[in-house]
Amino acid sequence: MFYSIRHLTRYRYDAPVRESVMQLYVQPKSEGVQRLQSFQVSTQPRAALQAYTDHFGNAVYHFDVPGSHQELSVEAEAEVEMQASAAPPEWVDDSAWAILSDPRTRGEHYDMLENHGLTRATPLLQDFLTERGIGKVADPMSSLRRLNQALFAAFAYAPEETDVDSPIDVALSKRKGVCQDFAHIMIAIARGWGVPARYVSGYLYTRRDGGDRSAPDATHAWVEAFVPNCGWVGFDPTNNVLAGERHIRVAIGRDYSDVPPVRGVFKGPANSELAVAVRVSPAKAPRRRDDFLRVVRPMMKPVSRAPENAADEQHQQQQ
């Protein structure tokens, strides 16, 4: 199956800004059943793209726009081939728990076991687990499958209720959220069980008629959990499926903040407005900017130097 992906991000500022430095996690991976056929990024204003591979093996692009500008856009286009993969088993042997608790396994997957950032367990999470009767069952695979389903059932899909970097408590108390929230909650629970779990940022070829809840014009996020004898298995609690041929992986991290699709800073006293559009199509469909660009809330903050920074400067510890 071939997909073509177009991902457009546009910042508009209400006053001229300068020295924007941007960082992108937008290149689909080329590993396993996923093959990257082509990829390109263009920016406006034009800039030289630099790239490196981060410590999780993700491709990171970055660029800067030193001069004055009032709009900045990034357009990434990729073509990806997805091969069918064998479906993971319904369950694994219950000795898998022992393998997971082995210090060597835990050491190897330290980063994906530790409570971190947005995936930190909270009292509210504990209440939620108790209330819904969610817990470990016979083996890790069955436990995760049930968890995936339980999260799908417990939460309504509702854009605009949470931010990309909201703590899990926001979604837990509202019982609503989007893919990032569900992924963070699932990760927190899985890690609590001793199952290494990681955040996956990517794209979904959405099939609304197939029961998907995800908005088709957004980036997607789901979870990969390490199951002994199976390796990393993708779970998508937003859509109550296991990640498969329609899930195009871009980056993995401990949580959203490790791998935001686009992040940046700029100088200048301005507010920014962000618009994002994503289209994943199985064929090279005609693409027009206007019919799929939509405005979301501002998410980029200026780095400014105000007198109150005195406190910041003082805040640094003296050794």
Partner: peptide, 11 residues
């Protein structure tokens, strides 16, 4: 939120 550093220095 740091205003003391240099954006992109790590790169």
């Amino acid at each position: 939120d740091s205003a003391l550093g240099v954006a992109g220095l790590m790169n």
